[in-house]
Design a protein around this nucleic acid. Structure first.
Length: 539
RNA sequence: GCGCCCGUAGUGAAAUGGAUAUCACGACAGCCUCCGAAGCUGUAAGUGCAGGUUCGAUUCCUGCCGGGCGCACCA
């Protein structure tokens, strides 16, 4: 509704802007006024235009407000110092939006005007050398929620997990398993964790004769199965688990190298093959990087280039990678490589999320899969629950550094804001049951309008849901949605206290408020669903 | 040393350059003959420091202080 409203406001305002002598601000901002003003929406346009128009902003605001008169969506438009135009929405607009939500909740938030290009989001992509640790939960939450939100908006989005099953790391895993099976310590640079010893013991007698290579294969298979199970339990589904070995098997590394050669981006120096991106115009990277080592072996970087080339070759027009901050130094070279392959600069984007720092009380917990010191995602999920865990990760911008105190985790779980949102859903479900029992049916005829600030506030908040989803897309993060749901929940509880829904003495009001309750519960349930969080009917 | 990220009430967070900075938890004082008190009402408490740009700065720029991460012919 707000997107359509913006359009009709802009259409009306363009004519006004011409006479005012300045262009409307390009992004046509529509903002939320301070609560005490009793306005629904606010246009700061005159402030932005005052300079170019050479007129006082308040004067512009007055004439803009006047020119917006008579729009069906508006009850009123008024100028407010220093130069805002505050809007009150009409009953028809608010009711109409609510009816739209209730009559087709799963379509609410679809954005047909958005880009149709296919998006691939790659996330987690942990080495298959151990169970997933807690930090993977952050990337998993960001990626999975983002995929769900993009799909909800109507975009073509796919989720992918890159399985690094062909390098030195998995080789070390094989050697470590081999040693453990023999009751020996793993090699110095191997995997020291107890889980390796446990895994080595878990295979039948025939495993005694396995080579390290066989151990590598079986180990990867088993650990990958564990990772898949953890992701499934965390509510994360990938469209594809993409093994590096497949890439190598079909000669994709050679293919990518050849393409770079053909494009003149490659040179040889000191026996190695280099990607020459540092001096290219507007290059992202400040150094050239090795693709093939002097010994003839491909670097990890070349494999990664081949993988990304494969993503584009499969028809994805926008490629998004979600990485932990420990990989942020890798962004410039990946961007440079994508450009060297001839893809538009904005077709690749890396979302960098800051790391999760673990504490037990005051004490920092070191995380190293190699040394076997790490906290498993599964442990935390079992302890605090998937819902609390995902909401906790979803609430923050990827840029925030976050500390996770394991000692407080369980205690915190009962204070996790997710329950504040879920409680709204449970409460409404309970109301709806009671209404059904008493034979009160939801109905919102045009003659009924919500008059209390609580009801209006809720109707308006519901109208923002589609805009919030677009914010998530723009920021490539689900955190605006999590915060929106908290705010929506915060509006419901006071409404519940002050506005009795089921009242046989006032059937019309009851029916109208029931519609509002339906709308809220749908948006809460849909919103939580996009975050991978359940919306229980009772708790 | 160079680069990236972050410093917002006691705690954890939010805020496309907009009005009196929002939310949750915690603290304090109240509220269940009434649709679920995992709730509500009220109170106290905040933008690291110093400049700059702007009609307007938590947001942009510079410097400083504090913290995280990264700077391989490793993966």
């Amino acid at each position: 509704m707000l997107a359509a409203l913006k359009e009709s406001l802009a259409t009306r305002a363009r004519g006004w802007a011409e006479t005012a002598g300045a262009a409307l601000p390009a992004d046509l901002p529509l903002t939320v006024p301070p609560p005490k003003l009793q306005a629904d929406l606010c246009l700061p346009w005159p402030l932005a235009m005052a300079k170019a128009a050479r007129k006082p902003p308040l004067e512009l605001a007055k004439s803009l407000a006047e020119s917006l008169g008579g729009l069906a969506e508006l009850e009123s438009a008024s100028a407010s110092p220093p130069g805002f135009v505050n809007l009150k929405l009409s009953r028809a607009a608010l009711n109409g939006n609510l009816v739209k939500i209730v009559s087709n909740p799963t379509d609410y938030g679809q954005d047909s005007a958005g880009p149709a290009r296919a998006v691939l989001i790659e996330f987690v992509s942990a080495n298959p050398t151990g169970p997933l640790h807690l930090a993977s939960g952050r990337g998993a939450t960001l990626g999975d929620s983002l995929v769900r939100i993009l799909r909800r908006l109507g975009r073509k989005a796919a989720a992918e997990y890159y399985v690094n099953d062909a390098g030195r790391q998995v080789e070390r895993l094989g050697l470590s398993l081999y040693a453990r099976r023999r009751g020996q310590e793993p090699p110095e640079d191997g995997y020291q964790g107890q889980y390796v010893a446990d895994l080595a013991k878990s295979f039948p007698a025939e495993a005694d004769s396995w080579t390290p290579e066989r151990w590598r294969q079986e180990g990867v298979k088993a650990l990958l199965a564990g990772q898949r199970a953890d992701m499934a339990a965390f509510g994360v589904e990938f469209d594809r688990w993409f093994p590096e070995s497949e890439l190598r098997g079909r000669g994709a590394l050679e293919g990518a190298l050849q393409k770079l050669k053909d494009r003149g981006m490659v040179y040889e120096k000191e026996g190695a093959v280099w990607l020459g991106t540092s001096d290219a115009a507007q290059s992202e990277d400040d150094k050239d990087r090795v693709l093939v080592k002097a010994g003839g072996a491909a670097t990890y970087f070349l494999a990664d280039i081949a993988y990304h080339e494969d993503k584009f070759a499969r028809g994805f027009e926008q490629v998004i990678d979600i990485w932990g901050a420990d990989h942020h130094g890798y962004v410039p070279r990946m961007k440079a490589a994508v450009a060297a392959l001839g893809h538009p600069p904005d077709s690749f984007h890396a979302v960098i999320h800051q790391l999760v720092h673990l504490y037990r009380g005051q004490e920092a917990v070191k995380m190293s899969k190699r040394a076997g010191e790490f906290v498993r995602l599964r442990e935390v999920m079992d302890e605090v629950g998937k819902d609390a865990c995902r909401f906790f990760f979803a609430m923050r911008t990827p840029d925030s550094h976050l500390n996770f105190d394991l000692e407080l985790a369980k205690k915190k779980s009962s204070e996790n804001p997710v329950y504040y949102c879920q409680y709204v859903h449970a409460r409404i479900c309970s109301i709806l049951k009671e209404a059904e029992k008493q034979g009160i049916r939801p109905a919102l005829p045009e003659s009924i309008g919500f008059s209390s600030p609580e009801e209006r506030g809720l109707c308006l908040k519901l109208a923002w849901f589609p805009e919030v989803l677009k914010d998530c897309e723009k920021l490539l993060s689900p955190h605006p949605l999590a915060n929106y749901l908290l705010e929506l929940a915060g509006l419901f509880h006071p409404f519940y206290e002050r506005c009795r829904v089921i009242d046989p003495q006032a059937a019309d009001v009851s029916s109208a408020r029931l519609v509002l309750c339906y709308g809220i519960s749908f948006v809460i349930a849909e919103g939580l669903g996009l975050l991978g969080v359940s919306a229980p009917e009772q708790m």
